[in-house]
Nucleic acid binder design. Structure first.
Lengths: 197, 197, 197, 197
DNA sequence: CATGAATGAGGCTTCATTCAT
DNA sequence: AATGAATGAAGCCTCATTCAT
C-alpha cells in the first residue's frame, strides 16, 4: 500500500495526488487507507519514513560489505549503492528529495528528519574516508562542520548526477560512482587552500 | 505584485498559496490580480520567468565586470554573484529551484526553460574558464557533454552551499564563492582520471 | 433528484439556477449531485434526456392503445397524450422546449437530439394518419419533407395551445386535442392548393 | 449601440453575453454603455422594446399598403411582412421570442408586453379577415377569445415556419406566407366542428 | 475489517458595476 | 461625455474525511 502511495506521490505535488488514486492503485478503498494510515499527511509521512529507511539501509549494507564486487573503497561502494538505489527506485528518491522542501509546510519536520538520517550516513562515510585508517591514508582530519558541508555537497552532487543518469542512459551507475567518488575525495584537499584564502 | 507572489510562493506549495493571499500582500484584490496575470498558473509562471531573468542578469553582469572588487577570476565573480543573489533573494531561489520539479506538472515546461537559461549561463561560465585563454591557463578543452554535467554539479553544489549559508550566518558569500570556485576548478582535471579509472 | 433539477430549471434560466438549489430541493448536498451527474451541464443534459424519454413514451403508449377512452383516432389519442403530459408535467415541457434554443450554446446538440426524438414521434403519427389505412381513408400521401414541416407546425401549435390551456383552466386537454387534431387534419389537403397557388 | 446588443443577445443566453462584448461590438466602452442604458437589464429591455416596435411597424405598414405587390389579401401581406422581417432580421426574432420565456425571470413583464403588442397586431389582422368586409366574404364572426387562440396559433406556426425557412433556403418567404395564410384561413371554419364535437 | 455513499469546507474564477481621470 | 482600472459578490467544482452497513 505504501508502494502505491510512493508511486503516486512521485507523480505530482502532494496536493495533486488524491487519496482515492492511492486507494485504487493499492487495490483497496479510501476508508481502508484511512484505517491504516490515519490521514493524507499520515500517508505521506509513512512514505518518507520508509523510503529513508530503505535508502539508509542500502548505503549502510554496501559500505559494510568488504566483499563487494565494487571494490575496496567504502566511499565508492556507498556512492554506488546510492546511485543504484536512485536508479532502481526513482520514485523513492523523488518523494524523499524532490516533493517537499524541508523548510516549510506540514512535513518540514518529518522530511527534515528523514533527510538528516541520510545525511548522517553520508557524513559517517565521508568522515571514515578521512580518518587515520582511510584507505588512501589521507589521514587529514575534518572538523565536524566541514564534514557536514562536504556531505551535503556530496549528496547534492549525487542528486544532480542521478538526474543526469536518467537523461543519459548510456552512463552507468558504476561510472558515476567513480566520478563522484573522485570529486568528493578531491574536495578533501583544496578545502584548506580555499578557506585559507 | 509579482514581488508579493514570489514571496507567497516561497512560503509553501503551489496549492497551499491562495490567490487571495497574493492579492492582499500586493495591496490589491483578487480580480485585479487576475486581470494582470490571467490565472493562478499565470501568476506562478510570471514569477518563475522574472526571477530567472534577474538571476541570469545578476550573474552575467558580474562576470562581465572586470573591475569588480571580487577579483579577476570570472568564475569566482559569477559564483559570488550567485551566492549574493541567493542570499539577498532567498524567495527567488526557492521559487525557482525548490517549488516544482521541472519534470512534471503544468509548469514543467516553463520551469524547465527558466532553469535551462540559468544553466546555460553557468555552462558558458565554466566553458570560458577552460578555454585557451583561461585565467589559470588550464587550457584543457571540455567537450560539451562534460561541460553540461559539470555545470549541473556546480549549480547543485552552489544550491547546497546556499542552504548552508542560511544556516551558518558566520560564513560569507565571499568565502563560499572561493570555495566552490576551487572545487569546480579542481573538477576540471580529475574527471579524466575518474573516467579512465 | 432529476425531478428536483427539472423543477429548478423550469423556474429560470440555466444560469439563474444554482446547483445548490437543486441539491437542497433534492434533499441532498452539492457534492452528491456532482457525484451522480458530473457537472451542471450534466444535470441539465440528464433532465432534457429524461423528459424527452417520458414525453415520447407517453405519446407512443397512447397511440398504441386502441382501447383508449379517447377514441379510435390515433392522431387525437397522441395529441391528447401530449396535452395531458404538458398539463401534468408543465416543468418537463418548459425544460424541454423553452429553456434553450436548440441552435446554440453548450446544449445545442443534446437539446436538438431530444427534440428530434419527439418530432420523429409526431412525424410518424402524422404520416400514419395519411397512409392508405388512415382512419378517415384520406389516403393522400405526404412526401417526407411535407411531413416534417407539418409535424413541426403541429408541435408548435400544440405548444401554443398548451400555454393557452394554462391560462384558461376552463378548457380541457380533451377539447384542445380535438381541436388541434382537426386543424392538423385540415392541413393535409390545403397544402396542395397553397403550393399550387 | 442597440444593434450591437441585439446581435450579441441573439448569440447566446442573457447570462452568456458579457456587457464588455456589447461595448466592444458597439465600438465603445463599458461605462459608456452604462451611461446610456443604465444596467444590463436595461440593455436587454431596450433591445426587446425596439425590436418589438420594428416588427409591429413592419407588419402594420404591409397590412395598410393595398398597392403591395404581394397581393390584395391583408392577411397574406402581413404574414409576408412577418416572414421577411424574420428572415432579414434573424437576430431580432431570436431576441424577441427565443431568448427568454415570458413567464419568469426579471424580464417577464417587459418581454410579455412586447409579445403582446405583436400578438395584438396579429389578432387585429385575423379579426379583420373574418369581419363582414373580409376579402373572401367569410363573414363568420370570431369571438375575441377564439381570435386570441387563433392568433397565437398563427404566430406559433409562423415561428416554426421561420425556422424551417432557415434550414431550407430553397423555400421563399412568399411561398410560406401563402401556405400559412391558407392554413390560418382554413382554421376559421373547422373550429366550429371541433368545439361542437 | 472493508466499503459505498455522502458532505463540509474551501479554492479558482468571472462579471456587473463603479470611480477617478 | 468617455474610459482605464479596480472590486464585491457569487457560482462551480473538488477533495479529505466520515458514517452506516
Amino acid at each position: 500500500m505504501i508502494d502505491a502511495a510512493v508511486t503516486a506521490f512521485s507523480r505530482g505535488d502532494y496536493h495533486t495526488v488524491r487519496v482515492e488514486e492511492i486507494a485504487e492503485a493499492a487495490g483497496t478503498s479510501k476508508p481502508t487507507v484511512y484505517h491504516y494510515l490515519g490521514s493524507k499527511e499520515g500517508i505521506f509521512t509513512a512514505c518518507v519514513r520508509r523510503e529513508a529507511d530503505r535508502l539508509v539501509a542500502a548505503i549502510r549494507a554496501a559500505v559494510r560489505d568488504p566483499q563487494s564486487p565494487i571494490g575496496a573503497d567504502p566511499l565508492r561502494r556507498g556512492l554506488h549503492a546510492f546511485f543504484t538505489f536512485v536508479t532502481d527506485n526513482r520514485d523513492s528518491w523523488t518523494v524523499l528529495y524532490r516533493r517537499t522542501s524541508s523548510q516549510a509546510g506540514p512535513f518540514a519536520g518529518e522530511v527534515s528528519r528523514a533527510r538528516d538520517r541520510v545525511l548522517a550516513e553520508v557524513v559517517a562515510l565521508v568522515t571514515a574516508c578521512t580518518g587515520a585508517d582511510a584507505p588512501d591514508g589521507a589521514g587529514c582530519l575534518l572538523d565536524p562542520k566541514d564534514a557536514q558541508l562536504l556531505a551535503r555537497v556530496a549528496v547534492s552532487t549525487a542528486d544532480a548526477c542521478a538526474d543526469w543518469l536518467l537523461e543519459h542512459p548510456e552512463e552507468t551507475p558504476d561510472a558515476l560512482a567513480g566520478h563522484v567518488s573522485e570529486l568528493t575525495r578531491s574536495h578533501l584537499r583544496p578545502r584548506h587552500a580555499a578557506t585559507a584564502h
